[in-house]
Amino acid sequence: MLDDRARMEAAKKEKVEQILAEFQLQEEDLKKVMRRMQKEMDRGLRLETHEEASVKMLPTYVRSTPEGSEVGDFLSLDLGGTNFRVMLVKVGEGEEGQWSVKTKHQMYSIPEDAMTGTAEMLFDYISECISDFLDKHQMKHKKLPLGFTFSFPVRHEDIDKGILLNWTKGFKASGAEGNNVVGLLRDAIKRRGDFEMDVVAMVNDTVATMISCYYEDHQCEVGMIVGTGCNACYMEEMQNVELVEGDEGRMCVNTEWGAFGDSGELDEFLLEYDRLVDESSANPGQQLYEKLIGGKYMGELVRLVLLRLVDENLLFHGEASEQLRTRGAFETRFVSQVESDTGDRKQIYNILSTLGLRPSTTDCDIVRRACESVSTRAAHMCSAGLAGVINRMRESRSEDVMRITVGVDGSVYKLHPSFKERFHASVRRLTPSCEITFIESEEGSGRGAALVSAVACKKACMLGQ
């Protein structure tokens, strides 16, 4: 009897593995994704193909990295998701002549009506938060230079001027797309009239992360975010950046690689679950690469896999709870928690219980395998993109072996128990001629924006502006 049951459990697990095998990517698959990513990057950089390229390769006008001589107080704003952060950054000489960066910050959550109302409502709310922060720190009387981390696709015309191309991540505030974001912020500050600010720089969160990590390690020339969304930036040779005049030196390019796949480059790798996630998203047909990796989508992918296993009578005796059938019910943090389970399955059992399920031991094991399959594919897909960037940098610099540091931020990278190990191992397999160091950014977005502002202020002083 026991043997029969054991055989049935083994057969069930084997069927589960057959279904989950769809998520496995072979090294040849990853090399294919990497080569296609490089081709799209090239198209994004070139003037004649930029418009139709899915990977936009947006110039950021960040050319210099901090040298350690900029000092002063800077205000930093960070808008990239449902939370908005205001930070005071003091850049100065530390002990023994070292450079020191001290920060104080406060988080504000953005109400739904500000995210989806008008641009005026959104930026009025942001300036209200700045006003509140300055009151708390008794700094209303000071006109501070301000660095703005704005983590949406922007076409820069200068370091302090950028046109919002399109909202992502659930934002829909009308009247912002096609307009200068810094102008919208300046107008809102003017409307309030109770404080003055000098907006000197606007950067993407990947750029802010790279600059913040450069402060720790001067070989950091790539910034990457794996959180709600997924994106990367890197220092490109100016001669390859056709959208900006000049051939000397390097400029940081914001790849906006989340949109890779929007022209069909990933079609052969998309599964039924991916198509369902895409169809029910706020932007169907867009940001397809990001939807395979980002935390906004990972939990939902797992939920759809679990429903398939229920329908195949391989999980929960073929019956799903009402909660499990509800879109968004299986949160991405559950994926991390399930994979963090120590082996007694308590954590998995508790999560499934909150979803109205009474799982068996085998159910718990199957749910864990589903989570591992989805998150491992995410790590491997992400590795193909980064390997594409790094191999490109090595080739354009004609280096036999390139040493490089990548600064990384984002909740999936930082909080998932195995993502970074799987990701690092896969990147290294795909970049055999590179020695890569990964560092995690601390308060990256805010500190990085302030350091970019410090560079901009120093330049302005040198130019006598």
Results as ranks from 00 to 15, higher is better:
L415N: 05
E268G: 12
H141M: 04
G410K: 06
V401H: 12
T342E: 09
S131T: 03
F23W: 13
V408T: 11
F74C: 06
K102E: 11
D409K: 02
M107L: 06
R394T: 06
N83Q: 05
N283P: 03
S441Q: 05
F152S: 01
M462I: 11
L352N: 07
E435Y: 09
V412C: 05
M57E: 12
R403A: 12
I351V: 10
L122T: 03
L355H: 02
R275I: 14
G343L: 12
E319T: 15
N254I: 06
A370G: 07
L79E: 02
H105W: 10
V374Y: 05
V338R: 04
L20F: 14
R447T: 09
I404R: 06
F148L: 05
M202D: 00
Q219D: 15
D132P: 01
T362M: 11
T326W: 14
R377P: 03
L165H: 00
A387E: 03
A232R: 04
F152V: 03
A378T: 07
L2V: 14
S131R: 10
R377S: 04
L30E: 12
M8S: 11
R192F: 01
E237L: 03
Y297G: 05
N254F: 03
V199A: 02
D132S: 07
Q138P: 03
S127A: 09
G246A: 03
R325H: 12
E443M: 15
P111S: 09
V16W: 11
I19C: 10
D278C: 04
V427P: 06
R192H: 15
C213M: 12
P66Y: 13
F419W: 11
Q287S: 13
H416E: 05
Q18E: 09
G193Y: 08
S100L: 08
N391D: 07
F195N: 04
Y273S: 15
G261A: 05
L45V: 03
P111T: 09
E236I: 05
R191G: 00
E95T: 09
G92C: 06
A114E: 09
H156Y: 02
A114P: 08
T437D: 08
T206L: 02
K169L: 01
M121G: 10
N240F: 05
T103R: 05
F330Q: 05
H317T: 15
T342M: 10
E51P: 10
M139H: 12
N166L: 02
L315I: 04
E256G: 05
D3Y: 11
I348C: 13
K346T: 12
G223V: 00
Y214V: 15
T65L: 15
I225S: 04
P432M: 08
A10E: 10
L386Q: 14
G343W: 07
E28F: 09
S100K: 10
E96Y: 11
V200A: 01
E96P: 11
M139F: 05
K190W: 05
E242P: 04
S263P: 10
T206W: 06
P153H: 03
E290R: 04
S396Y: 10
R368D: 13
Y125I: 05
E48V: 10
C252L: 11
F123V: 02
V241L: 14
F330A: 09
D187H: 09
E221A: 11
L144K: 03
V338D: 07
A329D: 15
T228S: 02
D363F: 06
Q24R: 09
P153W: 00
F150P: 03
N180C: 06
I348N: 04
V408H: 05
R250H: 15
P417L: 11
G328T: 14
G410T: 00
K420Y: 09
A456K: 12
S340G: 08
E27C: 03
A201Y: 00
D217C: 00
N179S: 07
E242K: 01
M34E: 13
T116V: 12
R155H: 06
L77F: 05
H105T: 04
E256H: 15
H105N: 06
N313D: 09
G285T: 07
H424R: 10
R394S: 09
R186F: 01
A232D: 02
V101Y: 09
E440K: 13
G81P: 05
R63F: 10
F423Q: 04
D344N: 08
Q286E: 04
G444I: 02
M210C: 09
S360R: 11
T209M: 11
E196S: 10
E196K: 10
E312H: 14
H137V: 13
G388L: 06
K172C: 10
L451E: 00
D42F: 13
F269M: 09
S418T: 07
E435H: 12
G444Y: 05
E14S: 13
L270Y: 08
T255Q: 02
L352H: 06
L164K: 02
G294P: 02
E221G: 14
D267N: 10
I189C: 02
V310N: 13
I351W: 07
P284N: 14
A379G: 07
E372R: 12
L30R: 09
Y214H: 15
S263H: 06
T361Y: 11
G249H: 14
Y214Q: 15
V203R: 02
L79Y: 04
G385A: 02
T255K: 01
V408S: 08
G162S: 01
D409F: 03
M8D: 05
V62F: 06
E17S: 12
L270S: 13
L386N: 00
G227L: 02
Q38W: 12
F171R: 03
K13A: 09
F148W: 00
D247Y: 14
F316W: 14
R327N: 15
D247S: 10
F334E: 15
L122A: 01
D247L: 10
A119I: 01
L301D: 04
K458T: 15
R345P: 13
D217T: 15
Y234I: 07
P359N: 08
L47E: 06
G388T: 07
L309R: 02
Q106Y: 08
E322V: 14
E421R: 11
M402P: 12
N391H: 12
E265A: 10
L58D: 03
F260R: 01
L430M: 09
L271P: 06
K190T: 15
R447W: 07
E395A: 09
G299T: 02
E245K: 12
M462R: 15
L314Y: 14
H424F: 07
V277K: 09
M41R: 01
G258D: 00
E319C: 12
R429W: 13
I130F: 06
A188Y: 00
E17V: 10
F148P: 01
E196D: 15
T49V: 08
L430R: 04
V389F: 01
K32D: 14
N240P: 10
N283H: 13
D344P: 12
L324H: 05
D3T: 06
K143I: 07
V338F: 15
R429V: 13
N313H: 03
T361Q: 12
I439W: 09
S127R: 04
P111G: 08
Q138N: 14
R397S: 10
R377V: 05
G318F: 05
G193K: 00
L430G: 04
R429I: 15
